[in-house]
Design a protein around this nucleic acid. Structure first.
Lengths: 252, 252
DNA sequence: TCAAAAGTGTTGCTCATACACCCATGA
DNA sequence: TCATGGGTGTATGAGCAACACTTTTGA
């Protein structure tokens, strides 16, 4: 029972090296026509074994010279061309059987602002350089994915839903200025249930996370006030870890 | 920007291998005399560079043939001779600068039942084979540790305190049968504040996690009923991940 | 009979929900 | 003027903190 694998972090010890991958579950929001918005995420089609032809989470091997969250940001940028408005480590998956050969995957989850995704898509369409092998899927209705990636997405969804309950994270999916109805719809899409507009309004007003602007969005009814996110308030309490050093740009 | 590190989990790709360590923040409870109990954790004195002579979290290199939580259980058993009543992954630390050479540490946190720790210590004392280079420290009053281990312990403490707030996890530190006062003292030790005995009683009674026994502990006052943990209820909600396959024994 | 802890009752506050209602605009 | 969503007011109930109170034991 008492194997003597020498104590860790020692430079000289003979130690088994392991292949370490970093993958990210990237959430964004899409609204088609006048449907309710829904959570979507980008997947990459595998071009080699194992699981060739199946869809998988975007990711890549951990570079020797980069931190874990840098690797997540990098692979995220490589597949979407964008930087995340929120990025958090999800879990490290390392079971023996999860891949034909031993791979430890450090998985992150991220939020992308829907307007940036839309702009990017439009740019690609205009330039005719839409990326091969990348497509967006409805988060709650995925095909069978490579490896254990279905389970990973399920866990990421669970974390997202949890987090939405106790922190104001939903506007990571929204443009800079948005109405309370926008924000409520995001929460409804994440939680998959309707929220009372009146009570929702009071909750966010009391949470102090939003700054009202003097702009209004006009529709065919009473105009709705636009709000902006209060940068002084952390999106989510992550304890002593704080927010990762921001490699993500502040694309204002 | 678009480096082409081939997509992960591919068996054939040239990929940088990384040394992966698994460490564990192991919490237990100690009461000296009639003091309030306090959280303690075992540390291992490093016997080689880097940080030779400093105390560090118990851990070891990840074996090629074991899952991550198996590695945590193994190293936990190697340093304490015991198995945990609760084990959960904490975080993966992999910053470039955290060790002279690149090491990714998958860190777990665990709870040990105080009675098992005491029995183990007594056995060691009797046999005169108390382990070298291992000692127990008060969790909130640690010396300067090797690597980034102080920050890791801080984060583990934060997680433990958080979790105690929304799940009934504290009896992972207690023997099989315990009084409500015992349980309350554990919570007080973790949260570092006094709790109202009356309200605490109602909370746990309503949570349905405890089974009252017909035994009582007598002192110099009214005897207190002993309770047992209700195995049907999960200690903590971990979402789709569920509880790890139990390598930990069910030492009843 | 007294000290001390076990255990019960009660009150008041905060907050979430449900829902009735008024407001402002475009058509 | 009317339909529609924006926005306000308010009653109800659950849950929790505070604390007074009763019960049961050993000394």
């Amino acid at each position: 029972m008492t194997r003597t694998n020498p104590s860790p972090d020692t430079a000289d010890a003979e130690s088994t090296e392991t292949r370490v991958a970093v993958s990210t579950v990237i959430f964004s929001l899409r609204r088609d026509g006048d449907e309710d918005p829904r959570l979507v995420l980008p997947l990459v089609k595998r071009t080699r074994d194992p699981y060739e032809g199946l869809w998988a989470l975007p990711g890549g091997w951990l570079d020797a010279s980069e931190n874990l969250d840098e690797a997540a940001s990098r692979t995220l940028a490589e597949t979407t061309g964008l930087s995340a408005s929120y990025l958090e480590q999800l879990y490290a998956f390392g079971d023996i059987g999860r891949s034909p050969s031993r791979v430890v995957s450090i998985v992150y989850w991220a939020l992308l602002r829907s307007d940036e995704v839309d702009a990017q898509s439009a740019a690609h369409a205009a330039a005719g350089d839409a990326p091969e092998n990348v497509d967006w899927f409805t988060a709650t209705d995925l095909p069978g994915l490579a490896f254990d990636h279905n389970a990973i997405v399920d866990y990421a969804l669970w974390r997202l839903r949890n987090k939405v309950g106790y922190s104001r994270i939903a506007h990571g999916l929204l443009p800079d200025a948005f109405t309370l109805a926008d924000l409520r719809e995001v929460n409804e899409a994440i939680l998959d249930r309707k929220l009372d507009p009146a009570n929702f309004r009071r909750q966010v007003e009391n949470s102090n996370t939003l700054i009202p602007t003097e702009s209004f969005r006009t529709g065919s009814h009473r105009p709705a006030r636009l709000y902006r996110y209060n940068q002084d308030v952390e999106l989510a309490d992550r304890g002593p870890l704080g927010r990762p050093r921001s490699h993500e740009s502040s694309t204002t």
